[in-house]
């Protein structure tokens, strides 16, 4: 599933003097669960609003499914952006009836999606009587209507309790297993780490990092080393200049790898200089650590 689903080319958008997006380019492929991360005001919702044609970019373009005419393609996309937008005086079923007619899909699909999100028993209750979490579930139901090829979720866990968050995670994982492409913007990095295959990190409207999530988490840029005599090893590593930022830690000595010296080379180099390493272990970072490091740079 390496087909282009969404290609964003050099999109820029400003609100008065405030730059919301600056030359953003992204390529999202079929089957990816793509996480869009960034602090408030980084441009996540603006990006999603532009690709859903709610707002127009000042410059740049985007293509859904390799086509520049996106009106019909939007019906292949289930979307929840920011807050759920429904009529409070209509029932859950009536609200979904409207979505179904817009997307030109049979109303029979409504019960299926309400069942997935656990709202089937409340289908005849008015939207205005729903709690925040139920409203969010209804918005997810609307996004799932018609079994779209792509799902876009902007903060899908908003207003949900822990059980609700777990349920939504399960829905996303199941939909991804069924081959759907999912684009989600979220602040809950733990959730993103659990469900996303790829991420892009935005800061002040600019893309600062993108890639596969396991590549981002396993940077292999830092390793822990230990030997029988860590003090001597520490002094040797500092003197040799083969690694940067040599520090002691609970797990041994933490060093930053600098190219072209990889961990295998360091192991060999230490051995040749009389240090037999007891352990050599790559330091993995959580997405949160990575994120904070990039954002605070």
């Amino acid at each position: 599933m390496n087909t282009d689903i969404l290609k964003i080319l050099n999109i820029s958008k400003s609100y008065g003097n405030v730059t919301a997006l600056k030359n953003l380019s992204l390529n999202i492929l079929g089957g990816q669960v793509f996480g869009l991360l960034g602090p408030n005001g980084s441009g996540k919702t603006t990006t999603l609003s532009i690709v859903m044609e709610i707002i127009k970019p000042d410059a740049g373009s985007f293509e859904w499914f390799g086509e520049s005419n996106n009106t019909n393609n939007r019906k292949k996309i289930g979307t929840l952006i920011e807050t759920p937008n429904f009529y409070p005086f209509l029932s859950a079923k009536q609200n979904l009836e409207i979505t179904a007619r817009i997307k030109e899909i049979p109303s029979s699909d409504i019960e299926r999606v309400l069942k997935i999100t656990g709202l089937l028993e409340r289908k005849n209750h008015k939207f205005g009587t729903f709690s925040l979490g139920m409203k969010q579930r209804l918005a997810i139901s609307a996004a799932l209507l018609g079994n779209p090829e792509v799902l876009i979720f902007d903060e899908p866990a908003n207003g949900l309790d822990p059980q609700g968050i777990a349920d939504i995670r399960e829905i996303i994982i199941n939909e991804a297993k069924n081959g759907k492409t999912i684009i989600m913007a979220s602040h809950i990095l733990d959730e993103v780490e659990k469900v996303c295959t790829n991420v892009a990190i935005l800061k002040k409207g600019q893309l600062i990092k993108t890639g596969k999530i396991h590549e981002l988490l396993n940077k292999n840029e830092q390793i822990f080393l230990s030997s029988d005599n860590n003090n001597e090893l520490f002094e040797f590593l500092v003197r040799s200049g083969i690694c940067k930022n040599v520090k002691t830690s609970e797990k041994g000595i933490l060093v930053d790898i600098q190219k072209p010296f990889d961990s295998a080379y360091i192991n060999k180099f230490c051995f040749e200089n009389g240090f037999s390493l007891k352990s050599i272990e790559a330091k993995t970072q959580s997405l949160e650590e990575q994120y904070l490091e990039l954002i605070n740079k």
């Binding site: 044609e53 939007r74 952006i81 807050t83 937008n85 817009i102 997307k103």
Partner: peptide, 17 residues
């Protein structure tokens, strides 16, 4: 009502022009 509940916006997202 379409503006106060942002439903026009939702209809655009769902596929209306």
């Amino acid at each position: 009502i379409e503006f106060s509940h942002k439903t026009f916006r939702q209809h655009i997202i769902d596929g209306l022009t």
